[in-house]
Simulated assay, not measured.
Amino acid sequence: MNKTDRLLAIVLELQRKNVVRAEDLADTFETSVRTIYRDMQALSEAGVPVVGAPGSGYSLMEGYFLPPVSFSVEEAVTLLIGTDLVEQAFDPTYGARAKASQRKLEALLSEPVRQESARVRSAFRLLDTCENTIQGQVLAYMETLRQAILSHQKVRFRYQKSHPGHDGRRESVRDVAPYGLVLARGSWVLLAHCDLRQDIRNFRLSRMSGLTVLADSFTPPDQFQLASYKPQDDRHLLVRIRVNSTIADKVKESNNFFIETMEEHPVGTLVTLRVRQLEEILSWVLGWGAQVVVIEPQSLRDRIREEAEKMLQHY
């Protein structure tokens, strides 16, 4: 980044935030703090009202605003594809706003940039960005949950989940304090504090039913930050399987959450997974049929044999 581009980017960064330290600007633009000091001096000499407070950082004088800047083709394409994703993957309210934002952005572009960005976008197409069940009920739940998160209102829903040692799925009623929504591997997940478990839990929207907003309000914990939150990893059960090389690519493309490593060997591809319980991958392993062999643990080998015998009885 040359000096002119960096000076413009610094002004935009100051405009976006109230106060910014020289050290943070140096990290952002990958330069030295001394260079940032010189940049601030250059901006002041150019008439930009930069205010420096020792020990705090730099800010712009109140009321100063840099007019909109032009977008490059790459920047315009990035933003327009972003609106396409929001329109497709979010609830109807934000979908409509994404469409409106797209029209406004296109109106700001010069004719050459607009034509070139349209040409570049024609080479991209978003398909199946979310699971099929995102349509309909799940989209409605997204909007309800988003409003509950912003208003700090608890919600109640019925939740279906597989339990080890039980046939089929079990349903429970959950009252939760919703903290945020996460799009993980094509599925929308609610991160919330569960009254039943007295801890933070993840809930797939596709497994919910009967969602209602409660009158009870909650106060989010001060230390909680959705962007930096990492759930405790309790996947302590190691599983190793051997995959026939003819389907190794398909196994990799399945993007299974529990896969840790895949290693090519003369006898096939060795796949290592870590799970909380065998039920989490039992159906996935069975789905590959004879193309997959479980190496360990023995308990999973036994389960596969039991399921295979049950299947044989049907034929």
Results as ranks from 00 to 15, higher is better:
residue 2 N to A: 02
residue 3 K to H: 03
residue 5 D to Q: 08
residue 6 R to Y: 00
residue 8 L to P: 00
residue 13 E to F: 08
residue 14 L to G: 01
residue 18 N to D: 12
residue 20 V to R: 04
residue 27 D to T: 07
residue 31 T to G: 04
residue 35 T to E: 10
residue 37 Y to E: 08
residue 38 R to T: 05
residue 42 A to G: 00
residue 43 L to Q: 01
residue 48 V to G: 05
residue 48 V to H: 00
residue 55 G to A: 04
residue 58 Y to N: 11
residue 59 S to D: 02
residue 61 M to R: 15
residue 61 M to Y: 10
residue 62 E to Q: 12
residue 62 E to H: 07
residue 65 F to H: 15
residue 68 P to W: 14
residue 73 V to A: 13
residue 75 E to S: 14
residue 76 A to E: 02
residue 79 L to S: 06
residue 79 L to F: 11
residue 79 L to N: 00
residue 80 L to K: 13
residue 85 L to R: 07
residue 86 V to F: 07
residue 86 V to E: 05
residue 87 E to F: 01
residue 88 Q to N: 06
residue 92 P to D: 02
residue 95 G to S: 07
residue 95 G to Y: 02
residue 96 A to R: 11
residue 96 A to I: 01
residue 98 A to H: 00
residue 102 Q to S: 15
residue 102 Q to V: 00
residue 106 E to Y: 03
residue 108 L to T: 14
residue 109 L to I: 02
residue 111 E to G: 09
residue 118 A to C: 00
residue 120 V to G: 05
residue 122 S to F: 02
residue 123 A to I: 00
residue 126 L to Y: 02
residue 126 L to E: 06
residue 126 L to P: 01
residue 129 T to K: 00
residue 133 T to G: 06
residue 134 I to S: 10
residue 134 I to K: 08
residue 135 Q to I: 03
residue 135 Q to G: 07
residue 137 Q to R: 15
residue 138 V to E: 13
residue 144 T to K: 10
residue 145 L to D: 08
residue 154 K to V: 03
residue 156 R to Q: 09
residue 158 R to S: 14
residue 165 G to K: 14
residue 166 H to I: 15
residue 172 S to N: 09
residue 172 S to I: 13
residue 173 V to N: 05
residue 175 D to E: 13
residue 176 V to A: 08
residue 179 Y to P: 05
residue 181 L to F: 12
residue 182 V to H: 03
residue 183 L to N: 15
residue 187 S to Y: 13
residue 189 V to G: 08
residue 190 L to M: 09
residue 191 L to K: 12
residue 192 A to R: 01
residue 193 H to G: 04
residue 194 C to G: 13
residue 195 D to K: 07
residue 197 R to K: 13
residue 204 R to Y: 11
residue 206 S to W: 03
residue 211 L to V: 06
residue 211 L to F: 01
residue 216 D to W: 03
residue 218 F to T: 09
residue 219 T to S: 15
residue 220 P to N: 11
residue 221 P to Y: 09
residue 224 F to D: 02
residue 224 F to A: 06
residue 225 Q to E: 11
residue 225 Q to W: 06
residue 226 L to D: 12
residue 227 A to F: 08
residue 229 Y to N: 08
residue 231 P to Q: 14
residue 232 Q to N: 10
residue 233 D to R: 10
residue 235 R to D: 11
residue 238 L to R: 15
residue 243 V to F: 08
residue 247 I to F: 03
residue 249 D to M: 11
residue 250 K to D: 13
residue 255 N to V: 09
residue 257 F to Q: 09
residue 258 F to Q: 12
residue 264 E to S: 11
residue 264 E to M: 07
residue 266 P to M: 02
residue 267 V to Q: 15
residue 268 G to H: 05
residue 274 R to C: 12
residue 278 L to A: 10
residue 278 L to V: 10
residue 279 E to S: 12
residue 280 E to C: 01
residue 282 L to M: 10
residue 283 S to A: 13
residue 284 W to V: 03
residue 285 V to Y: 14
residue 285 V to E: 07
residue 286 L to N: 01
residue 286 L to M: 15
residue 291 Q to P: 01
residue 293 V to G: 09
residue 297 P to A: 01
residue 297 P to W: 00
residue 300 L to A: 07
residue 301 R to D: 06
residue 303 R to H: 05
residue 307 E to I: 00
residue 308 A to Y: 03
residue 309 E to R: 11
residue 310 K to V: 06
residue 311 M to Y: 05
residue 314 H to C: 12
residue 315 Y to D: 11
